[in-house]
Design a protein around this nucleic acid. Structure first.
Ligand code: NAD
Ligand code: NAD
Lengths: 209, 209
DNA sequence: ATAACTTTGTGATAATAATCTCTAATTCTA
DNA sequence: TAGAATTAGAGATTATTATCACAAAGTTAT
């Protein structure tokens, strides 16, 4: 999808962290926070915090800092989280089940509304209150719930097929947990999350330290 | 932990992808591959592939390419995957269960050998063949199995405590799935995996496209 | 009111990472 | 064997991202 104005993707990830701290601060009754406070809580530098925010506007007051609640709202707006996003999961296996049971997504506005699988034995099962549907139901469910986001939680050998099905159903943002490169048209957003690679960064670093 | 020689962390992640493609190619009987083949399979540029490999040595033959199996072995060695790594998981919840049931880690040399939880009701349960132990057993299990790697799969409010416990037990590489910044001494390796932030990158991009 | 202090926002600078371009090695073809 | 084609390796270049340093704006104390 066409991006706004070349914002570093790392910035978006940090905004996510900042927003969680701000929510927390606001809940504790802390009205104003400085870039230093945010930085210390999230493990970055104060300059980085200010630079990240500067991409989007001026949210603070010099000599004072930022209003926690206001900045939280601004960031959530920037991230598109000022509304709810229905999400489809493809693959009702171990990972699909964990994702469905996870309460944390709802706090950020994500609502996993259906899981899809091609194994007839899994159809009709329920993970928390999320029902497992056959792949044939994907297109209709996407339309009914206006789903824009999907998660690939099928084995690597089926990941491309899962992506193709989602795209055909008009989902245009995809997270892929399968350890394989899925190829999509450039107007589709795709992020790969490779858990083994994360562990491998650790083993690489520990190897000859 | 002290790093070797400022290799981009993105390079390590890509090596992981390359190695999976190489394994696959070797299994299919493909003896030599070019940087172009690797690039196309993993979604990067050929120059990037060569540059990544160049950090570590010369593995190819000009005019020919790379021997799939040899390069695979080299990369696995670089990543520290020429041996098995026992892994501890803290938190026997949804995510902990999914990780224990996941077969893919074993292929890369990771062996989740125990899960720990502070909920008495969970102790003794088994996820696949991984047993749930009380937190009090952590130190001894780490010693017995020579565990160096740990995964935090507890709620955010307990993540720092889980990290502190692991470090006390002498684990020195940690993956944190909790959406919070855990603070550790600089000789400890820590990677955060934030699934909600990944989805938020999508919503940010879809927002006003 | 003034001086001392705090903190943002930003242009300049530095560091990091990706891409480009060319050379050298090797194979293939005729 | 000569010439064309392929492909790795590496230095140079460009692009991207993070850090620094400081002026501007605000607050607090005297
Ligand atoms: N479980 C984990 O902790 C974990 C960790 C890292 C990566 N992953 C990756 O996530 C993916 C899922 O892992 P998992 O452990 O849940 O696997 P799993 O085998 O438990 O579940 C996969 C599910 O996908 C379904 N499926 C297979 N092909 C399908 C298709 N074409 N269309 C629809 N459904 C299909 C299967 O019926 C099954 O229910 C894998 O690619 C795995 O490599 C999982
Ligand atoms: N489940 C998911 O798909 C998912 C996705 C993204 C992030 N996460 C994150 O992963 C973490 C785990 O998620 P989950 O869904 O498995 O949660 P969960 O509530 O299902 O499980 C958490 C487990 O941790 C145990 N626990 C709590 N405090 C502990 C402590 N101090 N020491 C040891 N054990 C302790 C609990 O007894 C429980 O069994 C959370 O931080 C969550 O935000 C989970």
């Amino acid at each position: 999808m066409s991006k706004k104005f070349k914002i570093p993707s790392a910035t978006i990830g940090r905004l996510s962290m900042y927003s969680r701290y701000l929510k927390d601060a606001d809940n504790k009754g802390i009205v104003t926070v400085s870039s230093r406070n945010i930085a210390e809580a999230t493990g970055v530098t104060p300059a980085q915090v200010r630079k990240d925010l500067a991409y989007f506007g001026e949210f603070g007051t010099r000599g004072v800092g930022y209003n926690s609640r206001e900045l939280y709202n601004y960031i959530m707006k920037i991230l598109g989280l000022d509304r709810s996003w229905p999400v489809a999961v493809i693959g009702a296996g171990n990972l699909g089940r964990a994702l469905c049971h996870y309460k944390g997504f709802a706090e950020r506005g994500f609502n996993i509304c259906c899981v899809f699988d091609n194994d007839p034995n899994k159809i009709g099962e329920k993970f928390a209150d999320v029902e497992v549907f056959p792949m044939s139901a994907l297109e209709e469910k996407v339309k009914v719930h206006n789903i824009k986001l999907g998660i690939i939680a099928v084995p690597a050998s089926s990941a491309q097929e899962a992506a193709d099905n989602m795209i055909k159903a008009r989902i245009n943002g995809i997270i892929n947990f399968a350890p394989i490169n899925v190829i999509v048209n450039e107007n589709i957003l795709l992020r790969r999350v490779d858990l083994a690679a994360q562990l491998e960064y650790l083993t690489y670093s520990l190897e000859d330290n």
